[in-house]
């Protein structure tokens, strides 16, 4: 994807439907979007997805938005660890669990 502005709620939803345990959307720093406001829109969409995920019992916390600049390798690693920790805490995606049970 050229920009997180391209991420739509439906992309996040589909990932969880297919069994993802978490989705991290990582965009440029706020105020530094090449397309002006792509990353801000992405944040709002992640928030919207979080609400829906909470409603259907998947848990909104599984979707997260992060921002960093392209030179920040270590920070990326830090976010990735953070996210992994969070997901470990939350456990597996209940949709996948239910799917496996049904199968």
């Amino acid at each position: 994807m050229p920009c997180t502005g391209k991420v739509d709620v439906i992309h996040i939803m589909r990932s969880f439907e297919k069994g993802a345990d978490g989705v991290a959307v990582v965009g440029c720093l706020e105020g530094e979007c090449h397309f002006n406001a792509g990353n801000l829109m992405a944040r709002r969409r992640v928030e919207q997805a979080q609400k829906i995920l909470d409603t259907v019992g998947v848990g909104g916390q599984r979707a997260q938005m992060y921002n960093l600049s392209s030179s920040e390798g270590p920070r990326f690693a830090q976010y990735a660890t953070e996210m992994t920790e969070k997901i470990k805490e939350l456990g597996p995606n209940p949709i996948r669990v239910a799917k496996n049970k049904a199968a």
């Binding site: 259907v56 998947v58 049970k101 049904a102």
Partner: peptide, 21 residues
């Protein structure tokens, strides 16, 4: 179309989680 996709996905997940076919 977009909203249809999001709603359908949410409904599917909800049904799954409740163990409904």
């Amino acid at each position: 179309k977009k909203e249809v996709g999001v709603l359908a996905s949410a409904l599917r997940m909800n049904a799954r989680k409740e163990g409904k076919e």
